[in-house]
Design a protein around this nucleic acid. Structure first.
Length: 264
DNA sequence: TATTCCCTGTGC
DNA sequence: GCACAGGGAATA
């Protein structure tokens, strides 16, 4: 499911096709995209040149020439498809952008959870979003201060986009495993050294997702290949670090996998 | 702060 | 054939 790394890679693939192009038409192909993007907003965006596409957390921000923006969010399984405008639409296309070079960018999203919204110039389309995990200004001390304000389980707090932008269910579980932190620990009980370790672990887990797939890497504990998960979805399988069986618990209707042996 | 809802393919 | 999965907004 698209979290920060997958969204970043999707943007990198899309950029060469859309940056500098003019939006000739926007087709809303499903009730979900018609809800999120009313006709007036389509009219506002059509005819404008796309100056740049930026990422903020899991959001993709299309900067338009007049200063307004289209903002896409993949949610659970959205992705972009690029092809000629006269080709048949891909299966599960929920929205399509016709470009001035004859190409068409389609938002492909089987579950129709993805959104594309329009935001007037001057408006902050991602207000309230927390810091970027790789922002050098986001220090372990700031991370720890944010955690200290929260009593909920650290797993849930890592998913809170106001605390940290871009981490979802998979990378939260992976980061907690890398850091050796139990998912149920209350966030405000995480001290400075564990907060520093956890921030490093978040960055490590996200980096693995950004790496070339299949490259072998080693950490202090284990050797694996990039995009290979350490705990997520490995219910009952042995921990790659200590061999104990991975357990699955539920946090707010979402699965969390962890190792009771080395996450404390 | 906890629960519900939006959707539909996948896996039992 | 049906429960389940899940990010974020809305609701209680």
């Amino acid at each position: 499911m698209p979290e920060l790394p997958e969204v970043e890679l999707a943007i990198r693939r899309l950029r060469p096709f859309v940056e500098g192009r003019v939006l000739r038409a926007v087709a809303r192909l499903h009730p979900s995209t018609r809800r999120a993007l009313p006709p007036a907003h389509v009219r506002a965006a059509v005819g404008q040149r796309v100056l740049a596409v930026a990422r903020r957390g899991k959001y993709q921000v299309f900067e338009l020439a007049r200063g307004d923006r289209l903002v896409a969010h993949f949610r659970l399984d959205g992705d972009w498809n690029v092809g000629p405008a006269d080709a048949p639409l891909p299966r599960y296309a929920r929205l399509a952008l016709a470009l001035d070079d004859g190409r068409r960018v389609s938002l492909v999203d089987p579950r129709a959870f993805a959104t594309v919204t329009w935001h007037r110039a001057g408006e902050d389309p991602v207000a309230g979003l927390g810091p970027e995990p790789f922002d050098p200004g986001f220090t372990p001390a700031r991370f720890r201060a944010a955690l200290a304000r929260r009593r909920a389980a650290i797993k849930l707090v890592l998913l809170d986009q106001r605390v940290l932008a871009g981490v979802g269910n998979i990378y939260a579980a992976e980061a907690l495993w890398h850091a050796g932190v139990h998912p149920d620990i209350p966030a405000d009980r995480i001290g400075p050294s564990r907060a520093a370790r956890l921030l490093d672990a978040v960055r490590l887990a996200l980096s693995r997702g950004l790496d070339e797939p299949g490259r072998v890497f080693a950490t202090a504990q284990t050797t694996a290949t990039t995009h290979e998960l350490m705990v997520y979805g490995r219910d009952g399988e042995p921990c790659r670090r200590c061999g104990r069986r991975i357990r699955r618990v539920v946090h707010g209707a979402r699965g969390t996998w962890y190792c009771a042996g080395c996450q404390r």
